[in-house]
Design a protein around this nucleic acid. Sequence first.
DNA 1: GTGGTCGAGCTAACCGTTTAGCATTACCTT
DNA 2: AAGGTAATGCTAAACGGTTAGCTCGACCAC
Lengths: 327, 327
Amino acid sequence: MATIYDVARKAGVSTYTVSSVVNRSAYVSPELTKRVLKAVRELDYTPNALARGLQTRSSRTVGMLIPDIGSPFYARVVRGVEDRLRQAGYSLLLGNTYNDPDEQSRYLAVFRSQQADGFLLFLAAGDESEAERMVRAKKPVVFVGRTPRSFEADSVTIDNVKGTRLAVEHLIAAGHRRIAIVTGQLTLSTSADRVEGWRRTLRRHKLTAPAEYVCEGDWTANSGHALTSRLLDLSGPPTAIFAANFLMMTGVLRALKERGLRCPQDVQVLSSDDSEWLDVFSPPITTVVQPSYSMGERAADLLLKRMQQLGRKFETVLLDPELHVRT
Amino acid sequence: MATIYDVARKAGVSTYTVSSVVNRSAYVSPELTKRVLKAVRELDYTPNALARGLQTRSSRTVGMLIPDIGSPFYARVVRGVEDRLRQAGYSLLLGNTYNDPDEQSRYLAVFRSQQADGFLLFLAAGDESEAERMVRAKKPVVFVGRTPRSFEADSVTIDNVKGTRLAVEHLIAAGHRRIAIVTGQLTLSTSADRVEGWRRTLRRHKLTAPAEYVCEGDWTANSGHALTSRLLDLSGPPTAIFAANFLMMTGVLRALKERGLRCPQDVQVLSSDDSEWLDVFSPPITTVVQPSYSMGERAADLLLKRMQQLGRKFETVLLDPELHVRT
DNA sequence: GTGGTCGAGCTAACCGTTTAGCATTACCTT
DNA sequence: AAGGTAATGCTAAACGGTTAGCTCGACCAC
């Protein structure tokens, strides 16, 4: 690989001049500019980002932590992030945590070592203290999807309380009185908020639900399946189930199918996370549409702002979910 | 951020000693080792990967190009890659090309600038010459999913000819005689091979199909929809349609639904790309299961081998698809 | 002619690692 | 005691960029 020295020699100028031309960082006469560009072309020179980053102490790279790139929801968030960062000239370093705090720590160490300029954290359940230290150390961090419980920071989340409220109101309007919720770890704000939305909406409509109607799982189809089986074994099983993500929803449907229960006739199922193509399948699943792509965009925007201006006050972006009714 | 100098000073040793301890690259007495580790801990020292990479001319980073992280299929490939690379101590730099050759070039430049040690390319349709230059320049490159048409290289692909054969044979066995195929750009080996498998299988069974039964799209749901509409307008419309990926399949179903055609009674639909949860929805879609996760793993393995031993002869891994029959 | 100002581009130090080559010490051999 | 050897860790030079501070010449005013 050609270096800046090679280019400088070939063009008969100093490395300063090459650098100035390549980065458009200082005026260079047309004559020299032409010679430099010619040498760059002929040597197929690409600046070494490592060397540049070492000197400028900025890698133009952002580290992002997500639970699972395999889930369409997260994937769309990543897409939003990437499209924005690309425009701003940043690259994305991605870390799949599989919701495992150890993997999470490992990736944070990698990001740190790679001198990431900023961090987008879609945190796993578990210890928040590491993330908190980063915020306290004034590193540019934006929390995505899940807000830290115990400290202030930039974040972009979806109004999960509202999302569940829309879903539950829809069910109540359809005549349901026994509505259960199947969700992920309750220590996560996403889960807690969804349960909160469910609880409040029931109360506002003067409905009650047994404690067993709140089912804590781990976002997987298997947990959705297991929790639903338990629900159906209750003496008073629900007539509607809200699943907090797509995979759990498929687990719910599987449990119903196993028992020969029909959806929506016997048990109606709603879920978070919309996909356009749900239209073409049955049963019809009414969903809470999470603006996942724009969540990614907004998070990237917020991070870019924070990186530019470290001292600014924390900002919290709350995005509105919508109900996509399917019948 | 603490540097190796800070650690050296604090421990009262040279940077050589710190480096030796941190990398376990040379024997250091227990006494000094202890002092170094203590200093590392107290200063919370993390080596600067940029400086290290500059010196060792290896970033321990792999650049990967994929069409769209938003598609579950690609996402699973990425997961396989990432899990393997992680074990080997590499980070993944991801580039979403959206099947756009320009984006692809842009990302290759980024990877190059970031001094990626290796490249995993799930290429977009279009010009292959850039990738070819990389291979000729003896850079560690592994092609994933799609093989280059015009030159030799390491690659990991799925036997698409066989996949389509399984699908078409299944349809023929079920009594279908008019089988159409809806696929992506025919310049891509994935598409071409699928069409090839379809054509050969029909011929082997002494069936013919009009030219219009081969429908070239761009992998999107919209193109699946448009192509299917055209198919249904033919004077002799097909009784079965094979869609070359998940999204196109949903487009096919949408077109059928619009016309009130029932699946599988009126038109049966098969597709590539399985998802476990298809079980819980109807219509039942028989799919060709692509071993996407292991494709990622194998690609990463192959790349690691190539990076270790640049001169080795090219290897082609062909993975077997399976049919997942749903009724 | 002198001094001042300005613009263009050069020089050289620095970013934080790794590592070849060397220095020092301890220990062994004869 | 002298010389040889091995073990241990130090010194200093890279790696490939960026950029503060400087030089040099052109131009201008008086």
